[in-house]
Amino acid sequence: NRHQFAPGTFSGVLQCLVCDKTLLGKESLQCSNCNANVHKGCKDAAPACT
């Protein structure tokens, strides 16, 4: 399954699913299917969408 990433819209601090570093809103993407949160630069390394 493929992620459907869109710019993240969340408040607070989240961790990137891929690199475990802190996500800030402006550099984040969120999958509309599984709600995975990743950095824009990490999206290609994200595991399959669940």
Rank of each mutant, 00 (worst) to 15 (best):
L24H: 15
G25Y: 05
L24T: 15
T50H: 02
H3G: 03
V38E: 03
P47D: 08
S32P: 14
R2Q: 12
C16T: 02
L23H: 08
Q15W: 04
T9L: 05
S11M: 09
S32E: 12
N1G: 08
N37P: 13
F5W: 02
V13G: 10
V38R: 02
P7D: 04
A6V: 14
F10W: 12
G8D: 06
K21I: 09
A45T: 14
C49D: 09
T50R: 14
C42P: 00
K43S: 09
T50D: 13
Q4T: 13
C19L: 00
N37S: 08
F5D: 03
D44V: 09
T22V: 11
G25E: 14
F5S: 03
T9G: 05
L23F: 03
A36Y: 12
T9I: 09
C19P: 00
V18D: 04
C31W: 00
F10N: 11
A48R: 09
S28G: 14
L14G: 10
T9S: 08
C42G: 02
V13E: 15
C42H: 00
C19D: 01
Q4W: 03
R2F: 14
L23S: 10
C16V: 00
L24F: 06
G12A: 05
L14A: 13
N35D: 12
N1M: 14
S11A: 12
L29T: 09
C42R: 02
V18N: 07
T22H: 06
C19G: 01
F10T: 13
Q30T: 10
Q4I: 15
S32R: 10
Q15R: 13
V38M: 07
K21D: 12
G12W: 02
V38P: 01
A45N: 12
E27Y: 02
V38T: 06
P47G: 12
L17Q: 10
L23M: 08
F10K: 15
K43P: 04
Q4V: 04
C31A: 01
Q15E: 10
V38K: 02
K40T: 14
A46I: 09
C19S: 00
Q15K: 15
T22G: 12
G12H: 06
D44A: 08
S28I: 06
T22A: 09
H39I: 01
H39D: 05
H39W: 00
V13Q: 15
Q4C: 11
G41Q: 09
L17S: 08
P7C: 04
S28W: 03
K21Y: 06
L14K: 11
N1K: 09
H3I: 04
N33S: 10
G41T: 11
L14F: 14
L14P: 04
V13P: 14
N1Y: 14
V38A: 07
V18T: 04
S11W: 03
Q30M: 06
N33Q: 13
G25F: 03
T50V: 07
H3E: 04
A6C: 14
L14S: 11
G41V: 11
A6Y: 11
L23N: 06
L23V: 12
H3Q: 02
V38Q: 01
C34K: 01
V18F: 05
F10D: 15
N37A: 07
C34Q: 01
Q30C: 10
L14T: 11
C49P: 03
L24C: 13
F10A: 12
C34W: 00
N33P: 07
N37Y: 09
R2W: 03
G12K: 05
D44E: 14
L17M: 11
E27K: 00
A36Q: 13
V38Y: 04
T50Y: 00
A48V: 07
Q4K: 11
N35F: 08
S11P: 13
S11V: 07
L24K: 07
L17R: 11
F10I: 09
V13L: 14
F10Y: 12
D20G: 03
N33L: 12
K21A: 05
A46Q: 09
F5K: 02
C49T: 06
C42I: 01
L17D: 03
E27S: 03
C34F: 01
L24A: 12
L29E: 14
K21E: 10
L29I: 14
C42K: 04
P7Y: 04
K26N: 15
Q4P: 06
C49F: 02
G25V: 14
K26Q: 14
H39K: 02
L14E: 10
V13Y: 11
S32I: 06
D44P: 12
C16E: 03
K40H: 11
L23E: 15
P47M: 10
D20M: 05
S28Y: 05
K26S: 13
R2D: 05
L24R: 06
Q15H: 11
A46H: 08
N33G: 12
H39M: 01
A46E: 03
Q30F: 06
N37D: 06
P7E: 08
D44I: 04
T50E: 15
S28T: 07
K21G: 08
T50L: 04
N1Q: 00
A36L: 08
S28A: 13
A36V: 14
D44K: 08
N33M: 10
Q30R: 07
Q15M: 09
C19T: 00
T9W: 03
A46P: 04
Q30V: 07
A36E: 10
G41W: 08
P47V: 13
G25P: 13
L29N: 14
N35H: 06
C34T: 01
C19A: 00
L14N: 03
P47K: 10
N37C: 09
